[in-house]
Design a protein around this nucleic acid. Structure first.
Lengths: 215, 215
DNA sequence: TAATGTTTAAAACGTATGTTTTAACCTTTG
DNA sequence: CAAAGGTTAAAACATACGTTTTAAACATTA
């Protein structure tokens, strides 16, 4: 077997299986079996299953953050960015980075799993490695939505994060329904096109009257 | 041990542990150990782990759907309902049904897990048992948002479902952050108050130009 | 009270998992 | 060519899991 093509095969297979079934439900034997690689290879090359999971994420997020940071730097230098422009940059980066076809939906599903499924180590990993880029983005977002109270913005960011992650996570199932019920062949591009006005409107929605505490 | 207080104890403990760690990551031994109940009791009372998971959901969703169906029936009889009213009813029902304190966030987390984690049997179960109520709601929603193309409405429903499920899923973690960073003691009521205008605005957002297919 | 059906207890079963070990196999380098 | 280091192969290890079995305890009813 050439070089360590083994590593790539493990990553590719693990990525697909994780996205399909979840982390705990995917065994190393299933991965190595499908990848036609020896069982011990995972522990040899990655050290453990946890480390393999993180490696799958790193392969996506490292190039994404690199490009997104560059885009953000350009925006910061320019100054006075509109909300639409900022979101457009985010969407553009998200779409353009993934290498192989259909890999974006796979990764989004992984991201969703990491947030909802992993009980801690994955969230911590994501925060430690990519938290800085996220903060940089939210700082920029704050400039675009200056009239939003900080707490309100905080919650709305997570509302929207939920929209994206959840939808992308269930993309295949939803796409099937959309095709059966509405004859729509939804591509990622289309989904982003649908998502952008919704997210924009959500972030610009009127702020509710602060409720007076009663308990 | 009185009667089948065992069943309740299993359900309570399983619910909490599932929400905290996920389904696959929570073993029957952990559940029965914490519930101070014999290991075999789960298989005796429920039949299998899968059935236990479904029972946890049923305990929530059965009363919820019962009340929500009643509310929907009232709306249907009345006719000409606004989007705000419909969402208000949904929110009211969601808040009022859960029995114990803090149980709503637990359940929302479960719902999120069911959608993202389970590879099929749980989705199928939810669809079979509660799909009718969901359809009834979406029918009503269609009346409130008549100018929205069907496909667009379909996607937006899932965007918003994502917001709710995802936020509620991570509620504890997010609440901690909100408290530390913004001195905000977020109660479920407050969250719903924040959510309503956002969801309304998202559903009312302008429809994007249909993209011409290029691939 | 005696008998019967239901629930709990304790142990064992069979299987699947992540990881480690040992030896073989290349590929590179002196 | 030979030695060495990196890589793969096959097997074994230890553990954890869901489930089943057997017997005891309990509650209910006749």
């Amino acid at each position: 077997m050439a070089q360590s093509d083994t590593v790539t095969r493990i990553l590719d297979t693990a990525e697909a299986l994780f996205a399909e079934k979840g982390f705990a439900e995917t065994s190393l034997r299933t991965i190595t079996g499908k990848a036609k690689v020896n069982l011990a290879a995972v522990n040899y090359h990655f050290g453990s299953k946890k480390a393999l999971i993180q490696a799958v994420f790193a392969r996506y997020l490292d190039p994404f953050c690199e490009q997104f940071n560059a885009e953000l730097a350009a925006l910061e230098k320019r100054g006075s960015v509109t909300l639409e422009e900022l979101l457009e940059v985010l969407a553009k980066t998200t779409i353009s980075v993934p290498a192989s076809k259909g890999s974006l939906s796979v990764f989004m599903r992984l991201l969703g799993l990491a947030y909802t499924q992993a009980q801690g180590h994955m969230r911590r990993y994501l925060q430690e490695h990519y938290g800085q880029t996220f903060t940089r983005f939210t700082n920029q977002l704050k400039l675009c939505t200056a009239d939003l109270p900080d707490a309100e913005r905080f919650w709305r960011i997570h509302f929207m994060l939920g929209s994206v992650v959840f939808t992308m996570s269930s993309l295949d199932a939803l796409r099937d329904i959309a095709y059966n019920d509405y004859d729509e062949k939804t591509r990622i591009k289309d989904l982003v096109a649908r998502l952008l006005p919704v997210v924009t409107a959500a972030l610009k929605a009127p702020v509710p009257e602060p409720l007076v505490a009663s308990d």
